[in-house]
Amino acid sequence: METEGFQDGEETHAEAWGANTYFDSYFEIEAVKILPGEYYVTRQDKLIVTVLGSCVAACIHDKVQGIGGISHFMLPFGLDETELIDSSIRYGSHALEMLINQLLKLGAIKDQLEAKVFGGGNVLAAPDSYLIGERNAAFLLSYLEAEKIPVISQSLLGDWPQKVYFFPATGRVLVKKLKRLNNTTIFDREARYFEKLLNIEVAGNIELFG
């Protein structure tokens, strides 16, 4: 069986994701739910779903090969400016490099990649939280520009969480802004991720928690 699922930099079979895989009855397709700090790459006809607050997501797709993937991440955020810049570059670059490298391993061609980007909202209850989303969005756009991967669509910043539906086989993305929430799950999940990032090891090689 081909390995195509990846979580926190560690290869896993897609079938082993447990509660993160399900059949979406509305779109009538097998779906994978991605949480903060995770990514997923596939060349199968699936749906990848994630919900973003201050985090950002890059949906990258080979427009010829029909291979696509998504990375959902947030930059580390601390008080020391020098450490902050260094850790952000290390962690953010690592998150996107993992996604791009796995796309290429599945047969994607670098010159055929294009991106759609989302998130970076002002929704996290933390000091200077509006800066977190702005930094995430700015880094994501800067990184893709440096990698010469064109951004053909974006929905960044704003005051609402976003639910992203990505069809990697075609590159199609649907976005729903969540202006009404029945619970605090989104904010609680992102707050826990934020707490983990405060303790991430960035002095040498990136150490991903999990």
Rank of each mutant, 00 (worst) to 15 (best):
T82K: 08
E83N: 04
A95K: 12
L79P: 00
L99Y: 06
Y91G: 12
L79D: 11
L79C: 01
F77S: 06
H94I: 12
S88T: 10
L75T: 10
R90A: 15
L104T: 01
P76I: 10
Y91C: 15
L84H: 03
E81I: 02
R90L: 15
E97S: 13
L104G: 00
D86E: 13
G78F: 02
M74K: 05
Y91W: 15
N101P: 00
E97P: 00
F73C: 03
L104P: 03
A95M: 14
P76T: 14
S87P: 09
H94D: 10
L84C: 12
L79Y: 04
E83Q: 12
S93V: 09
G78C: 08
N101Q: 08
G92I: 14
E81Q: 02
P76S: 05
P76V: 09
Q102V: 05
T82F: 05
M98T: 04
I89R: 13
L75E: 14
P76F: 06
I85L: 12
Q102R: 15
R90W: 06
R90E: 12
R90M: 13
G92F: 15
L96M: 14
E97L: 05
S88L: 09
Q102G: 04
L96K: 07
T82D: 08
M98Y: 03
E83F: 10
L104C: 02
S87C: 15
E81T: 10
R90G: 09
L84N: 14
S87H: 13
F73M: 04
M98Q: 11
S93E: 12
E97I: 12
H94V: 12
I85C: 04
L79K: 09
N101Y: 00
R90Q: 12
G92A: 15
P76H: 01
S88C: 14
E97H: 13
T82P: 00
F73V: 01
F77C: 10
S87R: 15
D86A: 09
S93I: 06
H94R: 15
G92Y: 14
F77R: 06
L79H: 08
M74R: 06
I89T: 11
I100M: 06
I85A: 11
D86K: 10
I89H: 08
G92L: 15
H94L: 11
L84I: 06
L99H: 06
R90P: 08
F77Q: 10
A95W: 04
Y91P: 14
F73N: 03
L103H: 03
P76W: 00
I89G: 09
G92M: 15
